[in-house]
Amino acid sequence: MKTLYAILVLCGAVALLPAFVSSGVVLNLVIMTLYATLLGQAWNILAGFGGQYSFGHAAFFGTGAYASAALQVHFGVNAWLCLPFAIVCGAAVGALVGALSFRYGLRGSYFALVTLAFAEVFRILANSVKFTGGGVGLLVPLKSSALDFQFQGKAGFLYVILALTLAGFLLSWWLKHSRYGAWLTAVRDNEDSAAALGVDAFRVKLQAIVISAGLMAAGGAFYVQYFQYIDPHLAYGPAVSVEALLGPIVGGLGTVFGPLLGAAALKLLGELTRNLMGDAPGVSLMIYGAVLIAMVTFLPRGIGGLFQRLAAKAP
């Protein structure tokens, strides 16, 4: 229950932010942190709670982004209606990838590589098909109205991404306090033992990838509204997959606050390096890579795990 209150207080505090802060730079930073948190939450559900490391979450992100953008561009559908459609499309791709991989018992590194290959297939397809605008991508028509999921200032976007992140928080919290969550973590820790205890491992994993993919697709749909543009590399490129996995690993895998902690730490680090080294291309990702190696080597349980260890040591 304490966790639940913490989530609500945190989200409430962020919701009050636009009343006191009008700086677009600050609000943008908060929005991008929450956006990274959302992608991290999505990946964390499958990998942190379910133990299935995906290297191709871009497949779900990109599908959400393109589903929303294409519906707006080609059929003039209202952007708000596109959001649930994008989530359903992303979840469907998740179901497809999951059904194939888990049916044939792919685990560990093999699962990671197959998800990566799926993302690449989607990227090449998006590059070659007219519907997605090919290599040029899709530009969402400018409407600048809240009714069309396009806001004048940053505050509107902040509320939307906050609501999505809150959903991610509640899902993670639910995994910690439900039968389904208990089954999912049991499958993560030992699939055979879980099966012997009556857990349908295939089904549990499939549900996890569907939830995870749906959340990821919501991130993609948000991206399209915020930047009003999507192309194959942005949608299905490896950068998104990396962004999704980096946060939870840095913050703490399989925890409720890990993705937020990680996203915040990485954003802070990103800003810091930008101030120190300028906006040179590659610098921030280079540092992220080094952070990833360092975390895996020295802090496999993330910053959150470090806090826990320190708290346990304190008298």
């Binding site: 973590t185 049991a186 993560r188 820790d189 030992n190 055979d192 033992s193 879980a194 012997a196 399989g254």
Partner: peptide, 10 residues
Amino acid sequence: FQLAQPFAGQ
């Protein structure tokens, strides 16, 4: 199972 493996994280 012969090799008792608890769900280690729990």
